[in-house]
Design a protein around this nucleic acid. Structure first.
Lengths: 350, 350
DNA sequence: TTGTAGGCGTTATCAA
DNA sequence: TTGATAACGCCTACAA
């Protein structure tokens, strides 16, 4: 009866019903100008034929794609997946689709991602910038009131912010080391061009200066997040002749828990003990970090609160049409577990 | 000079350059009919004006959106994020955008996801079905040659498959228990309507029958993946009067590592020891499972191979235009670590 | 080598 | 209450 293989559009339905396609469109959109009887007929037919509206045409015409685009730097980070999942589920209730992109800490990929995203005309963009370099950000200047920045504070850009105080996180982590008598700490983090990584180190330095302990920037090693990379960072420092690390340190501060497990792996390989020989503090609070051997002391990211902040911005802008931009900030907290050794107590015992 | 605020289209560029917009279009698409000089002029102008092509219009016109849609059931599962990330990065090189949706093991949400996805006209769909019920799947029958199913074997559907033998995984896990003398094992898994969960249990039953040990389906407890849910499943079985579990078992088989850590949590709470009192085997092989206390014996999902399978299908279909549907299957393997106790040895010692 | 016209599936405006 | 028509931004025959 109907054409096979051709996609079902409002025109197909109209032809089938011998009415005009504009009537079909109105019926489908619950336009009150349409007779109840006609609407029902159209709806039934649409159902029967398996009609799916074409979002592209809709978006092209109506200038709203009901899409939220997220650009993060490491989709495998469980905190980010949690946030993505929460936004995605919550906004789906209101007909929004969320798409996510991974810039892998690369400005070049970030640029490509922004261009892809822009070409898809999303209603809102969430971006975790790879750097403070405004080049890529400028691409988004036109839609600054439909933009949420994560992790950075961009005063010059009039857009929404969901900020987490990574400096405070680094500060807390360093304090936990220093208050336990650790002075020489290795720091394993993302390249410092990544804004939150820089904040992290800045926070560490603040703690050191408060404790009147000099901090040596050479102790900061940069790499990308993975167990392997964390391990390799340690490996490079290992001296196979002396069977010890080539530089002295008693603690390691990492930018996330994954890197911390790279240190754990090194401990297995090189037979040093955590925390007896080396103390470790992570960042993020991976749900599994409570079960590791030893349980990992880490900085907890308030992911629930962050997700709430996002939802709040998205709902007030998208659903209520409010236009003012908002700034949210939240603090990470220290979760003390068993990967930090108290050097004072240990030394007393010896 | 140019209008402010209005989006930049090929028409804007054409007007600016006093040429027709079709010339602009051709220049932008490297149509050889365009003079090199003109092309350069257009490209420069486009750049200068910050032109971004409108993917909606492109897709509407050309019937190809350069989009791959993925529908999984638990975006927070690291194996799935790994696969998503790999596909997303690899296909981005060829101009494809990957979007991911989470059905949360719900047929209803799955249906909504499929409809959303369909309305966005993706070039390919990857689906991990929530059930063997073909209702939702039928929505996709029109594009079966552009569909990849994960985790199920749908003989009647002529589409691509990336299959993992969960039954074999369950079998391996159960064998690891049985060969160590465990007969009474609890199973914590997703509802059995979820195809891979059913396969998992079927595999366990096969092992039991090979060992001539009766298997009691009452020992199968279903819930959704989370540490909390795994813990609560144990909690329900705990008898606070006797300070012991209300049913006897020496081992727990879980559908994923996250659930296994729910058992670990119960061990902390109720003061039993893993593996001395209760043995545990997980599934998935979370990267952190090597570092848990004790390291978790688990079934490793061949995620790298699965990702390769996906890439292979997508590339041959999308890039090379091949039309035959393909079936991939791979086997999980057992990763023995320290969460399983050998009962024979232990009993001998007593 | 460049320009004109038509159409992809919708929605919105206006006329019937 | 319904129908005809234009427009959203782009691509592609075909004409110039």
């Amino acid at each position: 009866m109907t054409d096979t293989n051709k996609p079902i559009t409002i025109k197909t339905i109209a032809k089938e019903l011998n009415i005009s396609f504009s009537t079909v469109s109105k019926a489908l959109n619950n336009n009150p100008a349409i007779k109840e009887e006609t609407r029902k007929m159209v709806l039934d037919k649409a159902n029967e034929m398996g009609y799916t509206p074409n979002s592209l045409a809709k978006g092209l015409r109506s200038n709203s794609t009901k899409t939220i685009a997220i650009i993060f730097n490491d989709i495998e980070n469980p905190v980010l997946t949690y946030i993505f999942r929460t936004i995605s589920i919550k906004m789906a209730d209101h007909g929004y689709t969320t798409m996510i992109f991974d810039s892998q800490f690369s400005e070049k990929i970030e640029r490509a991602n922004i261009l892809t995203v822009l070409s898809r005309q999303p209603d809102f963009i969430i971006l975790e910038p790879t750097s403070m370099n405004p080049n890529n950000l400028q691409l988004l200047s036109e839609m600054s009131n439909r933009l949420i920045l994560q992790g950075v504070r961009y005063e010059t850009m009039n857009c929404h912010h969901v900020h987490v105080d990574y400096a405070h996180g680094g500060y807390l982590a360093a304090c936990a080391m220093l208050s336990n008598g650790h002075r020489d700490c290795l720091v394993i983090t993302e390249p410092l061009s990544f804004p939150t990584s820089e904040q992290f180190v800045l926070g560490i330095e603040r703690a050191y200066s408060e404790y009147n302990v000099p901090f040596n920037r050479d102790m900061v090693k940069t790499t990308h997040s993975s167990i392997t990379n964390g391990f390799q960072t340690m490996q490079k420092l290992w001296d196979y002749d002396t069977n010890a690390f080539s530089i002295p340190f008693t603690g390691v501060l990492t930018f996330d828990d994954t890197l911390a497990y790279g240190v754990y792996k090194a401990a297995m390989q090189y037979n040093f003990k955590i925390p007896e020989d080396i103390s470790v503090i992570g960042f993020d609070d991976n749900p599994l970090s409570a079960f590791s051997m030893p349980p990992l002391t880490t900085i907890h990211l308030p992911k629930e609160k962050m997700a709430e902040n996002y939802i709040s911005i998205l709902q007030s802008a998208l659903l209520e049409g409010r236009t003012e931009t908002r700034f949210f900030s939240s603090d990470p907290i220290l979760i003390p577990r068993d990967s930090v050794c108290n050097l004072f107590r240990r030394n007393r015992r010896n």
